[in-house]
Each structure stands twice: as structure tokens, then as C-alpha cells.
Design a protein around this nucleic acid. Structure first.
Lengths: 129, 129
DNA sequence: TTTCTAATTGCAAACTATTTGCATTTAGAA
DNA sequence: TTCTAAATGCAAATAGTTTGCAATTAGAAA
């Protein structure tokens, strides 16, 4: 958290209350959040501020934008190792995946990959019965 | 095309001009199209009709909805073998991928996967220089 | 072939999610 | 403490998707 605040400061941007709050929410949880989830948890601040804070954090490189298989966009701290998710369509539980295949895809296609989604949705072990 | 028209008829739905046109566009091309691309190619028909036709085809199971890494949703005939795509962010060229890993993900997670996106965006060999 | 009706269409409007302009407020440098 | 560029809150614009409804039409039945 402190390290991330420094990153913001170093970029020339100001440490403001909205930014601190949004960052807090992202730091407190280990699961990716939608803008709306962050907004609802913050209560005080405006949605546009959540939007702009997250956008800034993403540009600064420490928050990642993920396109989930349920078509929702969620955000999480980029500090973890690169990974992907499965989300349960019933209870919303999110599990991380240990694989990715990015470099294999680059080899196969000879593209320079800049963005990818490798996201799954289904029924978790509990909900599938 | 004829086979697909039969599928529509058998489902109890009518063969109409909009449906025929939308199906035509999807049949004519080998690359996934956005609703808007279909709409613009059809000219005569309304966007809502494109929307509802594609939705019907998807429910009947012969058109697939794909969430691309550029956040756009595209549709293509499901007749081909299951596959995924890389799209060039520069020129829009789309290449198909020969891998997927669906069953591996099910094994790893013990989820019953119902939907997934395995889509990439980057620079194609031509555009990357 | 004509008639008839439920299904489908076109249009316009409603949603939902995302993004932006601008007057007011504020972080933090001087 | 003062001052100003940056950031916020609000409200409205934009874009993508979805829906209600009156008018039209496919195709079953006469």
C-alpha cells in the first residue's frame, strides 16, 4: 500500500482521498473487483472518481484490467504473478489458474501479443451438484 | 446455408428476409463479425433485427458468441471445430489458434466450465515491424 | 389461391456501462 | 499561509445492448 502510494506520488499525481480509498479496497481483497463493487464499498466518493483512479492505477501499471468470461471487467493489483481466473456463475467464487500459454501463442502465431483474455466461467465444485 | 435454414424452420421459427440476410453474411465470411458489421453489410434491415436474429441463431446453437481481447463481441458459425483467435490491433487481421485447454482447466479446477474466452490481441507479423 | 393469425419486424425509447466537460475544491509546492 | 495546477463531484454525453409496441408478414389452414 505505502509502496503504491509512492508510485503515485513519483508519477507526479497527487495522493487524494478518493485515490487512497480505491487503492485500499483493491489492497484489502484478493479477488478482482468491478468498478461498481469498488464504488459501492467506498460509499463517499463519486463513481467518476473510482473510474479515473482505477484508470490511473492501470496506466501506472500496478492495477490490471481483466475481461472475465461473464463479460464483466474487473480490476486487481498487478503485484501477483501473472495468472487467470475461473468464476462460478452460481455463487461468484473465483479461483485462480496456474497456467497461461502466452509465449506459446506468440511462437505459434508469430504475433507480438499485447493483450489477452484467458478467462473461464462455470460451476464450482460446490454448485455443480 | 440450406441446412441452417432447415434448422430454423424445424425450431418453429419462420424464415424471414432479415434472418436470411444475417445468415448469409455469417456464411459468406470466415472471420467472426460484430453485430454492427453484420448490420452495416445488410443495409436494408434494422439493427434490432440483426440483434434478434443472431441471438436466435446462438440459441439454436449454430452461431457462437466470442468475447475478443479488444472487448468487442463477435459472432461466427459454430460449424467449424472449436477454436480461438488472435486479432491484430493494427490491421484487424484475425488468425485462428489450434489450442484451447478446456478439459485441462476442468481437471485442474474441478469446475464444470460453461463459458470461456481464450482470445488474444497483438501485432501481426506484418504490423509488428 | 386466398384468408387468417401468431410470429416477426422496424422504430423509438429504455437500459447499462463507460467516458467526458466544467465549475468547484484541494494537495502540496513555494 | 498562500497559491495554482491537479483532482473531484456532478451531470450529461456516448456507446453498446435490449425491449415494448404498432404495423407487417410467413406460412398454415381453408
Amino acid at each position: 500500500m505505502e509502496k503504491l502510494l509512492s508510485l503515485i506520488r513519483e508519477s507526479g499525481a497527487k495522493i487524494t482521498n478518493p485515490r487512497r480509498l480505491v487503492l485500499e479496497k483493491l489492497t484489502e481483497t484478493d479477488k478482482p473487483l468491478t468498478l461498481n463493487e469498488i464504488y459501492e464499498e467506498c460509499e463517499i466518493i463519486d463513481f467518476a472518481s473510482v473510474y479515473r483512479s482505477v484508470k490511473l492505477f492501470n496506466e501506472l501499471g500496478f492495477v490490471e484490467e481483466i475481461n472475465f468470461a461473464d463479460k464483466k471487467v474487473r480490476y486487481e493489483l498487478a503485484s501477483k504473478l501473472h495468472h487467470h481466473h475461473v468464476i462460478c456463475s452460481e455463487c461468484g467464487e473465483i479461483k485462480e489458474l496456474p497456467i497461461c500459454l502466452l509465449s506459446e501463442i506468440e511462437k505459434i502465431t508469430n504475433y507480438k501479443i499485447t493483450k489477452h483474455s484467458f478467462e473461464f466461467m462455470g460451476l464450482c465444485p460446490k454448485c455443480k451438484n
